[in-house]
Design a protein around this nucleic acid. Structure first.
Lengths: 358, 358
DNA sequence: AAGGTGTGCAACATCGATTGTGCAAATCCC
DNA sequence: GGGATTTGCACAATCGATGTTGCACACCTT
């Protein structure tokens, strides 16, 4: 309990009058298979506890080539990813392993380097969320023989769990247009009299799917969609502010509906909206494909779609533990429908429906 | 580049016609001191690159008893802590080490267990942010001979970097009362005609300091403070909603000013505020001791104090790398002063001033 | 040419835990 | 009571990298 240098099984062995291998077996719980007398095992365990022994995990990992580490790679610490990280931690701990969370700042080079680092640590499994180049990373893992799963971004050659963005976007669009109808009895066909999609990166599957879902619903409702309605170049906040400002200029006011593609975009858009008078704001129907609790408390109602991070992570573990072929599993998001009057939202589950793309 | 099993220095040694120790020296960069011919070293390095060699870090750590891992323990993934994590990652990487971030959910038992785990991994250094029982953890680290620093929560027996909460709270209170004066020309002495402090855990130094700063300013401005003005029992969101609801009932309306002690409390309070008519909201002066960007975009202005996470982390590294005695270093927060008209905020640095407690 | 000084590298022990193997002593069986 | 089992444990190899020691050879010196 008191010495300076860290205790090893050899120290325990000396104190117990046993051999290191016996100590190891006793502390591992493998003593039964190794035919160690129960009395001996218990004596050793008692001594180890008393000495405050804890195994050198490097040595163990070196010998067994299993580290007990499970890593999660994420691009940054925003609300969604942090939630993922939180549930990930819990799940890993529940499996008696050690969660390691690393953010790579959306930098493909850093992603690769980090994966290399992690394989050098002989990590047991690797979860990716929102990575930029899934296939490369998957190949790296396969080469190092590391089980891995992708969350929130599909990979062609590895199991993935993703939100059914297309369906979610369709439902959200539906909800926006429903609110829009309530606000305006007769829609003209000026460029303002429709819904605009703002924010996101069209190179990424998630944005593509959301755009697809948005388009599905636009065509279902209005029979057509104009490419100009989709302003999706980046998730950057400043750009979002600029984009909405430009749109406002161009249309001579807000459109009747706005599909906001993430919380960062939401924040960027709000910076501009905050400068507008209230009546302009309440004349537009807002929807955000992300959940932001403060979004419920603004001067105008905002419908929101929330990804079910818990489910995503849990399904990812399930996939990792069972499947080998690259499957893509879809998780339906939840809808937070804003009530016009109270400002409060009601949660609404979404049923899977319709065709899927990844 | 292609084999199944991972390459080791022994494999490289065979291919290079050299001994493992020579390979090790070559790849380490210690070949000069070990009098290896430059030609040999270069040949070995070339072969290693070609083979896609990467060292087994467990083996290295076992041998050297230094892992190259630097860990950050945090309670949960909220905005502030996530920001800390982000800068922490960057700083660790800049030092060519590997950042490991673990959340322990404010559970002292889990904190202890995690530290034990990390010492078993012979981690090189440990950063704590917002932990519950700093002294115990510090003792654990000292026993395992691990350098460590506390961020955002002082520890009596280890170096700490914390925000000067008392001064920040004083400034924020000042700002709230300034806004209050603008809203109401004559303050009566009904219980409503003052500022209330809501949220936080008085057992924690940060809350104690904020209460102290709040009290300082109340006494400076009004000559007195009533214990009833301080409603600080927990950071819990639901409780915050309940507390503000009760307060509203008790006072028969909102108070003239409200000091909100964190973003979680902010969110809880807002759930209630969202149900109130706008004129009641604009008649109250709000301040929040935390930064929440959406807070700038509500139906009423909110002054905010922002902790400088970057500075906190950087100073923590500096302390770790130099000091040995337990020093407490203070970092001044920033003030986001909300403008009544535009809803926008201006950032204002805060000068250190006045007495400090732990 | 003998002794001294460098140079370039291989051998080997080591970090701490795991695990296959072997060998006494105890127990069993007829 | 002697061979066959079983019980209980110690020995030693091993994981991969590091770093100390020491050996062979070349070169220099006088």
């Amino acid at each position: 309990m008191s010495d300076k240098t860290k205790k090893t099984i050899y120290d325990i062995a000396v104190r117990a009058g046993a051999s290191p291998s016996t100590v190891s077996a006793a502390l591992n719980g493998t003593w039964k298979q190794r035919r160690i007398a129960q009395a001996t095992a218990e004596r050793i365990i008692a001594i180890a506890n008393d000495d405050g022994y804890s195994a050198n995990l490097q040595a163990r990992a070196l010998r067994t080539s299993r580290s007990g580490l499970v890593a999660l790679l994420m691009p940054e610490y925003n609300r969604f990813f942090s939630n993922i990280a939180q549930t990930f931690s819990r799940e890993v701990r529940a499996r008696n392993q050690c969660p390691v969370i690393i953010s790579t700042g959306r930098n493909p080079e850093e992603e690769k380097a980090t994966v290399a680092d992690l394989t050098a640590w002989s990590i047991d499994a690797l979860f990716f969320v929102g990575t930029v180049a899934p296939e490369d990373l998957s190949r790296q893992c396969t080469a190092a023989d590391i089980p891995h799963v992708f969350i929130d971004q599909p990979c062609a050659i590895a199991p993935s769990v993703i939100t059914d963005s297309r369906n979610g976007a369709r439902i959200l669009t539906q909800e926006i247009s429903r609110s829009m109808m309530k606000l305006t009895t007769n829609l003209g066909d000026s460029p303002r009299d429709t819904i605009y999609f703002i924010g996101g990166d069209r190179l990424l599957p998630s944005t593509r799917n959301r755009v697809a879902g948005f388009s599905d619903e636009m065509i279902a409702q209005f029979g057509r969609i104009d490419p100009d309605q989709i302003l999706a170049a980046t998730y950057d906040m400043e750009v979002a502010t600029q984009t909405i400002t430009d749109l406002y200029q161009r249309l001579g006011g807000l459109p009747r509906g706005l599909f906001i593609n993430s919380d960062s975009v939401f924040e960027g858009v709000l910076r501009f909206l905050a400068t507008l008078p209230e009546d302009e704001l309440t004349a537009c129907a807002f929807g955000c494909f992300d959940y932001e609790p403060f979004g419920q408390l603004l001067r105008f109602p905002v419908h929101m779609i929330r990804q079910r991070h818990k489910m995503l992570v849990q399904r990812a573990f399930a996939l990792m533990e069972t499947t080998s072929p690259p499957v893509i599993e879809y998780v339906q998001p939840e809808m937070y429908r804003a009530e016009q009057i109270t400002g409060q939202a009601t949660v609404m589950p979404i049923q899977p429906r319709g065709p899927k793309v990844d």
